[in-house]
Design a protein around this nucleic acid. Sequence first.
DNA 1: TAACCTATTGGACCAAGGTACAACCCGGTA
DNA 2: TACCGGGTTGTACCTTGGTCCAATAGGTTA
Lengths: 204, 204
Amino acid sequence: MQHWFVDRVPDPMATWLEAFPAAKMLRREDIQSLALEANGIIWFRLHSGEVADSALSSVRIKGGQLVVVLADEPDDALVTSALSFGASGCCNTHAAPEVLRQVALVVENGGLWVGQHLLQQLLGTTSRALKTGRREPRVDWSLLLSEREVQVARLVAGGASNKEIAMQLTITERTVKAHLSAVFEKLDLRDRLQLSLRVNGVRA
Amino acid sequence: MQHWFVDRVPDPMATWLEAFPAAKMLRREDIQSLALEANGIIWFRLHSGEVADSALSSVRIKGGQLVVVLADEPDDALVTSALSFGASGCCNTHAAPEVLRQVALVVENGGLWVGQHLLQQLLGTTSRALKTGRREPRVDWSLLLSEREVQVARLVAGGASNKEIAMQLTITERTVKAHLSAVFEKLDLRDRLQLSLRVNGVRA
DNA sequence: TAACCTATTGGACCAAGGTACAACCCGGTA
DNA sequence: TACCGGGTTGTACCTTGGTCCAATAGGTTA
C-alpha cells in the first residue's frame, strides 16, 4: 500500500511521515502527469479557506483510486462535498499518526471515514455513543513516555528493527535498546510486538 | 481493553476468540448481575429474526460502556435501531477476526461502525468510493497460506510468543517456527512484527 | 505408483531482541 | 550545591526468533 501526500508545498507534515515512512510527497501540479497505481491512497491537503470542489477538481479519481482529504479546517459541508466528489474520507491535516493509520485502515478496506459530528447529523438520532464524551481512550502511552521514547516506539510499531531505528535517529543500537527497555517498563509490555499492538491500537 | 461476548449460548464463535484471545463469554442472563468495568467492549449477538430493541433492552448501557451488535442477519433497520439504542456499531456475527479488530479499533476511539450500504443511504450521494467495487483489498495473505499457517499467523499477529503458540496448538515450539518460516517465505516478510502489521492491516 | 503438499519434529547454528549494571553529559530545580 | 530526570553509550549475558539440513507420515493428485 503506497501513500502519496499531495500539497501545494513540497514539505510534508512530520506526522505524515511518522504515520507512513514510505510515503511520497507530490505537488498539486505534479499529480496530473504522474501515473499512480491504483493500489494506494492519495492524501489531498486542503488549506484553510479552500473548498473541496475547486481544489479536488484537479485530481482525476481514476477507477479504484482512493483519496482522503486532509483539511486544515474540516467542517461538515467540506466533508460531504469531498465524499460526493469521490473521496473516501476527510480528516484533520494535523491528525496524529495513529489516527492517519486508522483512517488508512478503514479506507483501504473499502470503508468511508467521516467525522462523528457529521454522522450524528446524518443519523439524526440521539445516539448515546455519540454523547458519552469518550474522546480520550488514548490518554495512554505517548503521554507516559519521553519525547525520544515516543519516537522509538512509533518506529518500532511501524516494523523497524533496532538497527534501522538507530540509523534513522543517528544513535547507537545500544541506545535504542535502552529507550525500548524504558518504554517496556513504563507501559508494562514484554516485547516490541506488544508495543506495536498498543501503538497501533490493536490491543486485544 | 477487555472484550465480552454476550450470547444466548455459552460457546463463542471461533473467530471471536481468534480476534481477541483474552475475551470472555457471557450469557445474556448473566450480564445484569456482572459489574463490567467501563474500559471494554461488549459484543452483543443478535440471532436471526431478533430485533435490536427487545434484545438490547436487557443491557444497561452505563456511562461510557461500548456496545457493538453482532447480527446474524444485519440490515439497515437493525443497524439504525442498534445505534439509536446506544450501541457504537453493528457488524456481521461471522465477520473475520481482522474485521472485528478493525471494528474495535474504530469503536474504542469513539467512532461508530456502520455498514457501507447504510452510509450510502444516509449520505444520499453518488459517492464514487462506494461504487468502485473495492471489496477485496485483503484477497491476500490468508489465501496464500495453509490452514495451520493461518492459525499460527493470527496468533503471532495477536502478540503471542512461539512458546505460547506451541502450547495453545499443542505442538512443539519447533513446529511453530517451521510454520512461521513458511509464512514468511510465502508472504515475503522478514519477521513476526511485519507479519503482525500485515495481518492487522497496518501496512504503511 | 510416483510426485507433491502439508504437518510434524529434531539438531545445530546464528542473529536479533532484551536485561543488568554502570557510566557520562546536560539542564532544571530544591 | 546537590539532586534528579532524560539522553547517550559501554560490556556482558541471556532469551527468543529465525534459518538450514534432514527426516517421518498422511493425504491428494497425475
